[in-house]
Simulated scan of single mutants.
Amino acid sequence: MYKHVACLVRKEGTSHGEFVDYWQTHHTPIARDIEGVVRYHTVVPTDPEHSEFDGVAELYFESLDDLHDALGSPGSRDYDPTKAVAAKAREDVDEFLAIDERPRFIGEEVVQKDAVGGDTNGLYKHSAFLVRKEGLTHEEFRDYWETQHTPLARDIEGVVRYHTVYPTDPENAEFDGVAELYFETLEDLHDALGSPGSRDYDPTKAVAAKAREDVDEFLAIDERPRFIGRETVRKDATEGVEGY
């Protein structure tokens, strides 16, 4: 499954509460009907004062062609859609988003663990936007992430679902990948991964601590935003798709 991940930053002069209200009540009904969208998530930060973004929006498509056809080129922070609803959604984002401060990521999602039958609605989510360590190529980073780190991360205490998202156009992507870990409660997430606000974390659980130690082997931690939020599934037309 291919998805467009938008890390949302509110427009200057708008409070976080005003931003969330507009996003949920005005923009979401448009975005979930963008041509080709088969699944749509909104993720609201659990601690807005310490969050690096005001929210995360995830739009899923069955093919990369469908995604590009709706949302434009793979590399840009912005996009210029020609489809009717997608164009309406693009026009609407100017009402509440600081577009130039909003990273976007286009990638292919791989479900590495699923103990919830694909139902992520209401789960708490830790999204790590990964930047490779200096001296590594993207290919070297990906090989290490897939073969060494993922087997650790999916067994972190409390994780009930785990995705890795690989950029479809690494040369133009703002990140080398996205790692998404889901927990049933916020307490489980904090217990495994540490405080809600920091880019880094200091876990005490055995596997989580081992995973934290391992990230120094392939990630530039200080350049890797993390986002903790609660996910709401706004649309799901993926019945029959493996992992959903």
Rank of each mutant, 00 (worst) to 15 (best):
Y201C: 02
S198C: 11
D119Q: 11
K210Y: 05
S198P: 09
A173Y: 00
P196S: 15
A179T: 06
H126P: 04
G118F: 07
E139G: 08
L193V: 07
R154E: 13
R154I: 15
P203C: 04
Y201H: 07
K125F: 06
P151N: 02
E157G: 06
E171L: 12
G194N: 08
V207T: 14
T150N: 10
G135E: 11
A179H: 03
E171V: 11
E140H: 02
H190R: 14
S127W: 10
E213Q: 03
T137K: 10
V159T: 08
V178R: 04
R142L: 15
S195F: 12
A209I: 06
Y124F: 15
E217R: 02
D143W: 06
T168H: 00
Y201D: 04
E134P: 02
P170E: 05
R212G: 03
A209C: 06
E180I: 05
R132A: 11
A192C: 06
R199E: 02
G158K: 08
D176K: 03
F183W: 08
D143V: 09
D155Q: 11
D202P: 07
G177F: 00
L186D: 11
A209V: 10
N172Q: 14
T164W: 02
P151L: 01
D155E: 15
D188R: 09
F141M: 02
P203R: 05
R154M: 13
L152P: 04
G158L: 13
E157F: 10
P151Q: 01
V215R: 00
D191Y: 04
V165C: 00
V160T: 04
H190G: 11
T147G: 00
L130P: 02
F129K: 08
P203T: 06
P170C: 09
T168E: 00
G118P: 06
T185L: 02
F129T: 06
R132C: 10
V207N: 11
V131T: 13
P167R: 02
E180D: 10
A153Y: 05
V160H: 03
Y144F: 15
V215E: 01
D200A: 14
Y182D: 03
G118K: 08
G177T: 01
D200P: 06
L136M: 14
G135M: 13
S127G: 15
A208I: 05
K133D: 07
P151K: 01
Y182L: 05
E184K: 14
G158I: 11
E134T: 10
L136C: 02
D155W: 02
E134M: 03
Y201P: 03
